[in-house]
Amino acid sequence: MREHTLDLTADQKWGEGLVAVAEGEQVDLDVRIESVHEGMLVSGTVHTSYTGVCGRCLNDIDMPLKVEFQELFAYPGDETSDFEVQDDHVDLETLVRDAIVLSLPFQPVCQPDCPGLDPATGVRLTDTSGADQREPTDSRWAALQEYTTDHDDTASRP
């Protein structure tokens, strides 16, 4: 069993969509490699950060990311494997990149309760007080606006 700590930089942008790990971003890798009967079992943790825009209000975001992974690198043989040991070495680049990209949020938010944008004006709701926000009136319900419970017909009861 061997343990390694590596400080790397992303050689290219990892991820697509609203957020991604930028090229040149610091990637800290703690990895443990164990010899098992079928090959080498690699487990570890990746620490990095991703940047992009919030999916609700379009603010820029920069968030930390922690990803844990585990994969078996099989010895070359008759069976095909996604990851194989090559000359007593394992190539972690694909494994780490895939683990990071798959853990990126599909709909990232700048804060858990981000209200987003005002649908009428397009202004960020976090920038406004919300006092001037009114629900649009649907003309189909206009006749009900005059209805109140004060107009109950209590005089006609026997």
Rank of each mutant, 00 (worst) to 15 (best):
E93P: 00
L144R: 10
Q86M: 13
L117E: 02
S43C: 05
K66R: 13
C114W: 10
D152L: 15
E146T: 13
V42F: 05
T148P: 05
V53W: 02
V96A: 06
L117F: 10
A131Y: 09
D30R: 09
V46S: 01
E16L: 04
D91R: 13
G44K: 01
A155P: 00
P64Y: 13
V42K: 00
V90T: 02
E16N: 07
H47K: 13
V101S: 04
A120R: 07
V36M: 03
R140I: 11
P119D: 08
L65P: 01
N59D: 15
D91I: 11
T45N: 04
F106H: 06
D87C: 10
Q86A: 15
F83C: 00
R157P: 00
V123G: 01
G122S: 07
R134H: 13
M63G: 00
A142L: 10
E84Q: 15
E38A: 14
G39Y: 03
R56Y: 13
S139R: 11
S139K: 11
D28T: 07
L58V: 13
C114L: 07
A74N: 03
D98V: 06
L102D: 03
L102N: 06
E25F: 04
Y75M: 03
Q12D: 12
S49A: 12
P136Y: 11
H4L: 12
R97F: 09
Y50R: 00
P158R: 09
R97A: 08
S81T: 07
D7Q: 12
Y75K: 04
L72H: 05
S156E: 14
A74T: 10
L144S: 11
V46R: 01
P119K: 04
H37I: 02
C110D: 04
E146Q: 14
V67P: 02
E79L: 13
L8E: 09
T154F: 15
Q86H: 14
K13W: 06
D88K: 14
G15R: 03
T128Q: 10
V123K: 14
G130R: 09
R134N: 07
L29W: 12
D91P: 02
E68L: 03
V21L: 03
G39S: 07
D138I: 09
V101L: 06
S129F: 09
L58N: 06
L144Q: 07
R97W: 11
W14Q: 02
A74R: 10
S43Y: 04
C57W: 11
E23F: 11
R124P: 00
